[in-house]
């Protein structure tokens, strides 16, 4: 099960979190009240060029000191604070969510073409694998993930997502199987500017995980979704593939379809399948992935999970259910259902 929804405003017009809260809550049937989360792009305009690092702390003594030591080693914390939360009903602060606005020292990773990103990736992997009691769950610039155990509306109210404004939002309502009730297991998953919400189960996880780990990523969240964020980072950022070609690698056309293509297309698609066979994701899934200037939705190659697209003026919606899109935009102009594996891409134009 699980329910997903994402929206992008191509002109970067800001939306607060109240509408997506309603949309996600209407899909309560798809969850079990054990996990929900939101991600918004453009939420920290005052610190837009800094990395907003969100951490769950089990306590703010040992793990916090260690994380801060690590951050200070690799750069500078320009500002930090506890993420405001509001306990009510059964929502309790099981972890203490903290945020840092961090400037990596690019000189410390001089050999890299993307030193800042690589430093932050390294910090995320180090904290999540070797500092007990700390988990970095959001690490991009001018973006924030807000997630916890609970129903969509409970989690939204816990963080008061209506207080945040973004031009791109994604949200996820969880029916957990791999890890129950663990805050780190809720979606969205995030690495740098990539965020992922996912409905499904990746049957190729064992292959994908071993593949991505051979490029230096560590899977630490005990669930299959995080590999999607890492695969996006590897293919779209490090290997410079377009979002469309990245999706092509993750959910490629069947050989039979490739054989019917024009020679140049055939060559390209064969090259993608041969090179990125281990990145191909199998099993039932509908996924929405976001980065700063785009929202991408796609399903598995035989569409075993629902995915609906809504278009309305400058906004593109991607969701598990049409009802959720209509909750956000009752007069939505166009609703469509993409074919299996077909990428739906919304880009900001401004």
């Amino acid at each position: 099960m699980c329910g997903i929804i994402g929206v992008i405003d191509k002109t970067r017009e800001m939306m607060d979190g109240s509408a997506i809260r309603e949309a996600l809550a209407i899909m309560d049937e798809r969850g079990s009240g054990e996990g929900a989360g939101y991600v918004a792009y453009g939420v920290y305009p005052d610190y837009a060029d800094l990395y907003a690092i969100h951490v769950f702390y089990d306590n703010i003594i040992e793990p916090k000191t260690k994380v801060e030591e690590l951050l200070e080693t690799w750069g500078m914390i320009e500002h930090d604070e506890e993420i405001p939360t509001y306990e009510s009903g059964r929502m309790r602060k099981v972890h203490i969510p903290w945020r840092y606005f961090f400037r990596p020292n690019r000189k410390l990773m001089a050999q890299s073409h993307t030193p800042e990103d690589d430093i932050v990736t390294k910090i995320v992997m180090t904290v999540n694998t070797s500092i007990p009691g700390a988990l970095i769950f959001s690490s991009g610039q001018n973006i924030g993930v807000f997630k916890a155990s609970g129903w969509p509306e409970e989690v939204a109210d816990f963080y008061r997502v209506e207080d945040y404004e973004g031009y791109l939002w994604m949200a996820h309502n969880r029916y957990p199987t791999n890890t129950s009730g663990w805050w780190g297991g809720a979606h969205p998953f995030n690495l740098l500017n990539w965020s992922v919400v996912h409905n499904g189960e990746i049957t190729s996880y064992g292959t994908n995980r071993r593949y991505i780990e051979s490029f230096g990523y560590s899977c630490t969240m005990y669930t299959d979704t995080e590999v999607v964020a890492y695969l996006m980072d590897l293919l779209a950022r490090r290997h410079n593939l377009s979002p469309e070609h990245t999706v092509r690698a993750l959910a490629p056309p069947f050989w039979e379809e490739i054989e019917r293509m024009e020679p140049s297309e055939q060559q390209l698609n064969t090259a993608i399948r041969l090179t990125y066979g281990q990145a191909m994701m199998n099993g039932p899934f509908a996924i929405a992935v976001a980065s700063h200037d785009l929202l991408v939705g796609f399903s598995d190659r035989i569409k075993l999970r629902p995915l609906v697209v809504g278009e309305h003026d400058q906004r593109l919606y991607i969701s598990s259910e049409e009802a959720a899109i209509r909750t956000m935009e009752p007069s939505v102009k166009k609703i469509s259902m993409p074919r299996a594996g077909q990428p739906i891409v919304g880009r900001v134009v401004a």
């Binding site: 190729s204 292959t207 191909m280």
Partner: peptide
């Protein structure tokens, strides 16, 4: 739940 051999290969899970 796998429809392509690439996703079986090395899938020790």
């Amino acid at each position: 739940g796998i429809n392509s051999i690439e996703s079986l290969r090395g899938n020790r899970d």
